Amino acid sequence: METRILLIGSGKSFMVTSIANELKASGFEVIKTEPDVTAIERIENRPPVFLFYVDEPEDMKDVFVYIKDKVVEDDISISIIGSHDDITKIFTNVPRERVAAVFERPVNVKQLGVQMMEVVAKEDERLQKKKILVVDDDGTMLRTIKSWLSDHYQVFMVNSGVAAITFLAKNRVDLILLDYEMPVTTGPKVLEMLRSESSTSNIPVMFLTVKSDKESVMQVLKFKPEGYLLKTMPPADLLASIDEFFEKKKLENVSKY
């Protein structure tokens, strides 16, 4: 289990030092950094769990805007220590679903180690799930699909083909759910681009679409998509189709040995 934590807070703060010492005593490897985007970016092999100690949320505004993108791009979870008002302000910049834990000040430093061990355990369990990238220009559809699948899979979202290519340049996923009709770069064009690059050519792709006519299907057969999932499918049927796909892949891998 990953026991590294990135502790973000002022190095001059007595509480930050106390928290770091207590976490180390609880078995964590603690990497400390100032609440500064440049300082965070300089850290190589950053841990997947960030713990923020917030004194002045306005001073950390740039950091949280930066983290808003990083929680998706680098697949991290964050926990926050701060006052009730500070935490409320932070949630204007950080998606609540990626906040693993919130600790209101004054925090019990002795209990923090135990609570963060629970956070790390849950994060480790989450990271064991298969990764799915959903590509759709409709924000509502993206959020809907994520809500249907996130209990079973790690779900990442991008709203264009270009964004998908950019995301996949830095991240590996187990399946792509690709909208067929998108402006600028259509789903079939995105799949063609994916198949032309060695780093993405073998990533399984399923079309997520309202188009199931023969002409649309035939247009992309040469790129060998794993199948078609209709946006009108009931949530249970969509989940069952994806579960079936991964189970089939698992059996294929077993049969190779």
Results as ranks from 00 to 15, higher is better:
residue 192 E to V: 08
residue 182 M to T: 03
residue 19 I to T: 00
residue 91 F to C: 06
residue 78 I to W: 02
residue 146 K to L: 04
residue 223 F to A: 13
residue 172 R to G: 09
residue 183 P to T: 07
residue 15 M to S: 14
residue 247 E to T: 05
residue 6 L to H: 06
residue 12 K to A: 15
residue 170 K to H: 10
residue 247 E to G: 10
residue 34 E to M: 06
residue 106 P to M: 02
residue 42 R to T: 07
residue 24 K to H: 00
residue 11 G to V: 03
residue 168 L to K: 04
residue 110 K to E: 14
residue 88 T to V: 13
residue 189 K to D: 15
residue 230 L to Q: 12
residue 103 F to E: 07
residue 238 L to R: 05
residue 237 D to W: 00
residue 11 G to Q: 09
residue 34 E to P: 09
residue 196 S to H: 04
residue 188 P to Y: 09
residue 78 I to Q: 01
residue 126 R to H: 13
residue 42 R to E: 14
residue 223 F to Y: 15
residue 71 V to W: 01
residue 237 D to L: 11
residue 127 L to D: 10
residue 33 T to G: 01
residue 80 I to W: 01
residue 228 Y to S: 04
residue 184 V to Q: 09
residue 65 V to T: 15
residue 67 I to A: 06
residue 27 G to F: 00
residue 236 A to W: 00
residue 248 K to L: 12
residue 174 D to V: 02
residue 9 G to E: 04
residue 224 K to D: 09
residue 203 I to L: 09
residue 250 K to Y: 01
residue 54 V to A: 14
residue 88 T to I: 12
residue 145 I to Y: 12
residue 173 V to S: 04
residue 16 V to A: 14
residue 200 T to A: 07
residue 17 T to Q: 15
residue 157 M to G: 05
residue 83 S to I: 00
residue 242 I to S: 05
residue 224 K to R: 10
residue 167 F to I: 02
residue 243 D to T: 05
residue 73 E to N: 12
residue 252 E to I: 06
residue 241 S to K: 08
residue 209 T to V: 08
residue 125 E to W: 05
residue 124 D to S: 14
residue 197 E to H: 12
residue 239 L to M: 09
residue 63 V to M: 02
residue 50 F to K: 05
residue 254 V to K: 11
residue 208 L to N: 12
residue 75 D to L: 07
residue 6 L to G: 05
residue 135 V to F: 07
residue 17 T to F: 00
residue 212 S to G: 12
residue 164 A to T: 11
residue 210 V to K: 09
residue 140 T to D: 13
residue 139 G to M: 10
residue 188 P to V: 09
residue 180 Y to W: 04
residue 200 T to Y: 04
residue 136 D to A: 10
residue 24 K to F: 00
residue 13 S to A: 13
residue 130 K to N: 12
residue 181 E to V: 15
residue 36 D to E: 13
residue 139 G to E: 10
residue 100 A to T: 01
residue 207 F to Y: 05
residue 24 K to S: 02
residue 222 K to M: 13
residue 43 I to G: 09
residue 107 V to A: 08
residue 87 I to W: 03
